[in-house]
Design a protein around this nucleic acid. Structure first.
Lengths: 210, 210
DNA sequence: AATGGAACGATTGGATCCAATATACACGAT
DNA sequence: ATCGTGTATATTGGATCCAATCGTTCCATT
């Protein structure tokens, strides 16, 4: 393979965090995990350093890496930073969205709806991301998008249940649709608001599990 | 020493980036740098992965790490994200600043003025940070502060000249003082504005070097 | 002279090995 | 019985060594 192991391992780690194969608070025993991944400890440690910089794990010298636990306040903090950055990204995106962009985004929206019906958690989550980040991407600020990605990652471990309850499926789809419509109207403030509602409802569900 | 080498190395790297001992665009040859730091390549590589996650260096598989180069647009992006986050941090901080906090911050402000007169670049830069981040810290959102820190780091390599020109010293001190006064009045919007002016002038100077 | 390609050298990527540190447990003193 | 002390073990941290990859140079061919 061309891509370094450390990169693959960091992907795999994110996956395991999302699917709660690694639980918040849990210690990451390097040797055990390295063996499970079929690699040595070196690339694993590099991957862990990367995730540490993103706040997904914390490192205590000579004690080890632990999956970050978020309390209610920290969860709220992540979401409030998201609120700021997403609002900005959406305002900028609205000014730049081409019709082709919109068509593409709506495609992703429908793909997500499809995934909701008959796909596993990971596929659903990734389809959801694809939809939202196609919008963020249009803001034209790659660094901002990267920050948003790490913020989304930070709460991933707690979001698994968000897509579980099928009662929320309709809510989500309705919110996505409303968001889509605001974007189509190039209604920046409207889109900021639909995204806000969408996010607030998700934080409510996610927080309930704490 | 108690703290791991990888941590020390990442500190040292930031230092070398700030002081332009490592220049934007330059490749980082691991073995050479490891030897210069007196460590092996392993902790160096971990440190580099950390800095990569913060955007200070970029990694090209099988080619190596390179010090990130910012063009004008990317520089503007960093500063516009800073604008968003700093405004929020300051608003929150204003509501929470105790008199003791203010006294402490003003102390740091005076310490910075002292450093300007008779200290090297690195000391000045760190005194400046101490002042601004004492304010940010008061917002009570540690993650937000951490994000701000990495954003400041991202442009550090280009800021060295900011403190060089002694003509700007008075400007900086005046701006700090105005900021301080707004904070003392607990005038959130005023403080946001003084910080904005301060930042805009700095981006102007820094951008002129591109 | 220009282009394609093979071999070499330099550098990165990964694994194994050894050292340092922290935690747990047993033991003894008060 | 409780607290402190020392030892043992598991785990992390770091260095060395080997393998894989990339870039360059040199040569052959057109």
């Amino acid at each position: 393979m061309n891509t370094p192991l450390a990169t693959q391992v960091s992907e795999r780690l994110r996956e395991d965090l999302l699917t709660r194969s690694l639980l918040p608070g849990q210690q990451i025993v390097q040797e055990a995990l390295a063996e499970r991944y079929g690699v040595s400890r070196v690339p694993l440690r590099e991957a862990l350093k990367e995730l540490e910089a993103e706040g997904l794990v914390i490192h205590e010298p000579h004690r080890g890496y632990f999956v970050t636990e978020l309390n209610a306040a920290e969860m709220a903090e992540v979401y409030s930073i998201r609120a700021l950055l997403e609002a900005d990204a959406i305002r900028r995106a609205c000014k730049r969205l081409s019709d082709a962009d919109l068509a593409h985004i709506d495609e992703l929206r429908r793909a997500f709806e499809g995934a909701l019906l008959h796909a596993d958690l990971e596929t659903i989550a990734s389809a959801n991301r694809a939809f939202h980040f196609a919008i963020f991407d249009a803001c034209g600020l790659p660094r901002l998008v990267r920050l948003l990605r790490t913020l989304w990652d930070a709460t991933d471990a707690y979001r698994s249940l968000y897509f579980q309850d099928s009662g929320t499926h309709e809510h989500i789809c309705a919110e996505h649709l409303a968001h889509m419509e605001a974007l189509t109207r190039r209604d920046a403030e409207g889109a900021v608001e639909t995204q806000r509602l969408h996010r607030e409802r998700s934080v409510l569900i996610v927080s309930s599990s704490l």
